[in-house]
Design a protein around this nucleic acid. Structure first.
Length: 164
DNA sequence: TCAGTGACTATAG
DNA sequence: ACTATAGCCACTG
């Protein structure tokens, strides 16, 4: 089963498997989409929460029904730490997040964990940036990462891409 | 088991 | 300021 959150700047697809969310798919908005947000019919409780999160910034409930089955231990710790401790409108570096998750020095492994984040946007991997003031990577493209950060009013002079 | 792989980082020119 | 490089670490086939 799957359902949708349509936001002016992106579409998020929630993929469910037996009452657990297996993953989310994130894609930038097509050109000429609406400027109002909506969901697919009969949204789940989680999707309603997500909708309110983006509409009113009401915090997401702590115990989201995510499927952690196949996530290795370190990655699970990193993702849970990111979800709990890096709220809307803030950022963290890969190395700092490694420390917060209990493995100082594992910055590179955190990057790999972010690359495999099954729940983009819900687990806010777009808020993780480089220690050298660079933007860092993003699965859907760095431009889209910038857009998501701008959505949260995060202003930053990312040194790596001095162009544009 | 172990060599290879990255959304990293500090350091050296 | 920019580039190259050598450590770094969890995970993978």
């Amino acid at each position: 089963m799957q359902e949708y959150l349509i936001h002016p700047d992106f579409t998020l697809v929630l993929i469910w498997k037996k009452n657990r969310m297996e993953k989310t798919l994130l894609q930038p908005a097509d050109s000429g989409t609406t400027n109002c947000m909506r969901t697919s019919p009969e949204p789940s409780r989680t999707l309603k929460n997500l909708y309110r999160y983006y509409l009113h910034r009401e915090p997401l409930h702590q115990e989201l029904p995510l499927d952690w089955q196949k996530i290795p231990p370190f990655r699970a710790r990193v993702l849970k730490t990111l979800f709990r401790l890096v709220p809307w409108g803030t950022t963290v570096t890969y190395s700092r997040l490694a420390s917060m998750a209990g493995n100082p020095g594992a910055a590179r492994a955190v990057g790999t964990a972010m690359a495999g984040n099954p729940w983009p946007v819900i687990i806010p991997c777009h808020r993780v940036i480089r220690a050298d003031n660079g933007l860092g990577g993003f699965s859907c493209g760095t431009e889209f990462k910038k857009k998501l950060l701008a959505l949260e009013d995060i202003i930053h002079n990312y040194s790596t891409s001095a162009d544009e």
